[in-house]
Design a protein around this nucleic acid. Sequence first.
RNA 1: GCCGGUGUAGCUCAGUGGUAGAGCAGGGGACUCAUAAGCCCUUGGUCGGUGGUUCGAAUCCGCCCACCGGCACCA
Length: 559
Amino acid sequence: MTTTFGHRFYITTSIPYVNAAPHIGHALEYVQTDAFARYHRLIGADTRFLAGTDENSLTNVLAAEREGVPVADLVDRNARAFLRLTEYLHIFNDDFIRTAAEPRHIEGARKLWAACDRAGDIYTRYYSGLYCVRCEQFYTEEEAPDGLCPEHHIPLELVEEENYFFRLSRYQDDLARAIDSGALRIIPETRRNEVRAFIARGLEDFSVSRSRTRARGWGIAVPGDPHQVMYVWFDALANYITALGYAHDDELYPRYWVENPNRVHVIGKGILRFHAVYWPAMLMSAGEPLPTTIVVHGYLTIGGEKMSKSLGNVVDAADLTARYGADAVRYWMLRQVPPTQDADYTDGKLERRYNADLANDLGNLLNRTVSMFRRYRAGVVPIPGQSDATDQDLEAVAAGLAGTIEEAMSRDDDPQVTLAAIWDLVVRANRYVEETVPWSLAKAERGGDATAAERLDTALYHLAEALRLIAPVPPALPARDGGAHRRADRLRAGDTFLARGAHLGPASTRNPGQRAAPDFPEDRGMTRDASYVIRHAYCVLRISPLSPGGRGAGCEGSA
RNA sequence: GCCGGUGUAGCUCAGUGGUAGAGCAGGGGACUCAUAAGCCCUUGGUCGGUGGUUCGAAUCCGCCCACCGGCACCA
């Protein structure tokens, strides 16, 4: 994927069903996608990040019936919960699309359908089968020999109707070519292999509509046939372009889809086929460009068990964030969860990570550094003297950071490697404090030792610089008001360590000897006083240890 | 059933032929700028089992066991 400065980057989360409140798995996808989007903003990309909700599914109708509320109400309530979650987690998505509520989507989905139809890829066929209304899917007699749904153990209905089918079979070779050529990248490789194997076995056309009756009147009408609604996946997948104004050729569509070499979907492993087979085929049919990259993450287990309602172990995402704060949740998900594999969540695992890394390593480094600045230099970053071997060693670690991060994020989207590299610097900086022994230098300085005074200047300067480099790491930024999203979103290339070339020393942009400018996020200048950055990061982090089972010390509403 | 993956210290994992590694947790120490944090030292493993190839295998091959994915409309 191209990552030259100034490139474009469009990234999406999948759009979840809204038949229930968001759980920790949804949070994971938000956080992973957000990290990837933030990285590309950091390096100067024209970035757009889309999230949303899949509202036309029959499961939503059934959930509403169980609750005895109108579908639109249930969908609306839960969609708001997902939207709120993006705020709780400090997800900087640029847009949020709702597939049942928005004309841009409904019209776009119908336009896509019409385009496939024009290409001759949509036709009618009589279809019958054993159908489970809960699963919203058909089962063969081998799969359900007793006539009961293997998933829900309820009687299957014999459904017979005429449906529209999509001519998927026609795109078998083109899909294989797209994947083999790398035009459509699927990460990780095991997922790509699964898709290739699936395609190689032969593709059959699939049904893309339901009778309006079977859909209980809910869904997007098929163009030219009021008796049928679109199969929910057909309309749901379209969200990735309808949100860009595909329906009316808005400016966003060419900018972020047609003329953008980075079109990235982040999805869970359970919906790989829809994204890697159906969706590209639909786009081919409609004559539109395919996504370029599909990143497939795993699922979270809870205490070693699959998360499920029947087990009663579903971890509510909003509740989790309320308990621990966005920083703790985000950090754990990015540091501890392998980006493309399953991982196990427990409160204890999150707390251990938080305490060891955020509170102890980073939090204490910030705290002790701020304290020394106040105590020895009245909060002002001093002008450094000549670097000795110890200083140069720290400089070297810092200098290698940008390259490591770029390699990890640009190629593989691997926040684990990124955070590990950043923590190498954190650990090194803590050791640097021990090696330079600033409190001894301060003592000697008070005794009139001018050499010690200069060494102390140099040491404090280096600590300030090291902390400035990692300042973009804290995921939360001051949330002083509702505009925090927008303001933080402007924290782009010019303000960040990657764009500046992360190194310490004379070439570094800083303004020693001066007091801080008061408005860090607003201040687009590059001469911000490092001591302010430290205070800023400290204020944002507010990291204090979590006691086992105790309450989190996140940054919500702080600053 | 078929195909693929995983099984390494209490926990999370790295390590694809040459006498077992990291982080966390546990134990000890020196220091004090700091959130009993940080720094230094350190206890832990017959590398799932078994049989082979090899001078030598966690690392290659066979078999077995356990768990996890994929095998058409399922976050």
